[in-house]
Design a binder for these strands. Sequence first.
DNA 1: GTCTATACTCGGATAGAC
DNA 2: GTCTATCCGAGTATAGAC
Lengths: 193, 193
Amino acid sequence: MILAEAQRCFSEHGYDGTSLNDIAAGVGIRRASLLHHFHAKEAIYQAVFERALSDWAVRIEQAIDVPGAEGWTYLDQVLTTAVRWFAENPDFVRLARFESLAAANDHLGFNLGEALRPWFQQAVDYFDREMGAGRFRKQDPEQLIITGYGAILNYFSDAHFLEGLLDRDPMTEEALETRVEHIRTFFRSALEP
Amino acid sequence: MILAEAQRCFSEHGYDGTSLNDIAAGVGIRRASLLHHFHAKEAIYQAVFERALSDWAVRIEQAIDVPGAEGWTYLDQVLTTAVRWFAENPDFVRLARFESLAAANDHLGFNLGEALRPWFQQAVDYFDREMGAGRFRKQDPEQLIITGYGAILNYFSDAHFLEGLLDRDPMTEEALETRVEHIRTFFRSALEP
DNA sequence: GTCTATACTCGGATAGAC
DNA sequence: GTCTATCCGAGTATAGAC
């Protein structure tokens, strides 16, 4: 599948660091044949991104949509699910990172931040409710979410860097278990009244 | 100054997204003249990085080296200094981000994680002491630091993204003040016994 | 130290045969 | 749908004049 290989390349080396030859070689065809399916490199990138984003949308809806969910138990569940999913989709994480690092109007026909804004707003509303009901300590919801996604995304996008920093593989089952536990404990410490 | 302009370009568009023409144009000379000072593009990149890193080393030593420092007051001070310094050096933040995202053995002759390990270890030791003395709640020090640098670095490296997400400029004086306050409050909530 | 000119390679994209 | 062939532009790097 072309999109799968393209995602692998883009997430590993970024847009500029990936050539059509790289992708074509991975697929097992020639550069020109790629362009039979997509009229330009940017079109491939956009297709990769849209697919990844809609996959992600499905998963997040599943994780979010827990009936009668509230308080710490719910947040704990969402955090754990997020970490697990990101752990299983390192490509997506790196792709998102490259994209949020890119200057506006590079490669993508739309703004990633804007695209995620509805979910962001939903999360803000959740924290507003919980804090208003006294189930969480009062903090700035927007800032909290920014910190949260950073704490999770970072770990996976910077795996190469962390391997150098820690001098061990940060992606083993054991290391990931440690990471999940930390995220849960840390947020709980900060939020529980 | 060549290195300053090179840093601007690399931090804005990454290594692959920056051409010698881009840098030369910013300096006001021709591409060939650049290569009189540095024998290759990679050499420019490495020079930029080493300069940025040693600048950073100086600042971090200053921030860390507070006599008799301990407990929350000290950490609070370091966090605030870090946020302020990163706010004033967005280039450095984006450069570091691009680099920690890059695959091993790309562009740089050394491993960034390895280079930062001594400071990392120092920070781990600090938390170990503080937690041992009961001044902080017990948490995994390594994980805590990873979360902390993520919370800070992210905000600045993803400014473009955040602007789309929040629908406002995340780098105004007011926005930065809010961010500092959040970081302080959040960590305090999580760490104070 | 900076320039022009040039060599060479690579990447994106198109045309047309099979 | 995939290929070869080809075009064009951009990129890195070098040679040599001023």
